[in-house]
Amino acid sequence: MARATAPARKALTTAIAGTLAFVMFFPILWIVVLSFKSEVDAIRAPLQVLSSGWTLDSYGAVQERSDYFKHFWNSVIISLGSTFLGLLVAIPAAWAMAFVPGKQTRNVLMWMLSTKMLPPVGVLVPIYLLFINFGLLDTRIGLVVVLMLINLPIIIWMLYTYFREIPGEILEAARMDGASLREEVLYVLTPMALPGIASTILLNVILAWNEAFWTLNLTASRAAPLTAFIASYSSPEGLFYAKLSAASVMAIAPILIMGWFSQKQLVRGLTFGAVK
């Protein structure tokens, strides 16, 4: 039931909500502004900053000084790699739990989730030592594997909830129609679950992109993704507001855009279906 609201009241709500939204969004907006300023202008008072000239210099400087694209590619490879590796393992597992539920299914699912509750710092030491032993420290493959493992429960869980929405009767119909298990998954399940699979990829790329415990602790420079690259700006001697802003904008822009498309999936993926 859409009820007619008085325009005056609607205007008032819009004004209040708009102001609060602007406050929340302001830090992001501000670094976008600063990224187009010179270093000298960037540290002035806000009004002077706005009235100063615009420049693209900082973006060029970030690439020159610290090889931004290397870290960007590390982020891309690590987040996409861990997500797709995870899907490969998760799709069959989610199929099994969604369509052939047994007495243990519920327990297995809960146990998988419980691995996500493990605080990373609890296993920091052994993982660090194992990485040293196997020569995985500061390698992309090492991070791909670790991020795949920490996000696997979320991937399985999301796929499971999407698969469960597909009526079992349709897969049974396929079975009656003579489809083998492979054909059933390939021609009926996967095309039907495509939107769900896409959302799963989206959310997990975001989570992997922003992961900042393992990426900070297991990389030095070679395999460092953007999270670690930005952290290197924390030392005071390397502090330049405009460059930091430019680097930050480039680090968050891709994911911000993806994030806007994934609001719904975010709720489903991060609450494990407890809120719909």
Partner: peptide, 16 residues
């Protein structure tokens, strides 16, 4: 606009 900060990586929000 309200949701955007969630997508900012922790290192960026800390430094900013």
């Amino acid at each position: 606009m309200v949701i955007a900060p969630f997508f900012v990586m922790p290192t960026v929000s800390g430094l900013v």
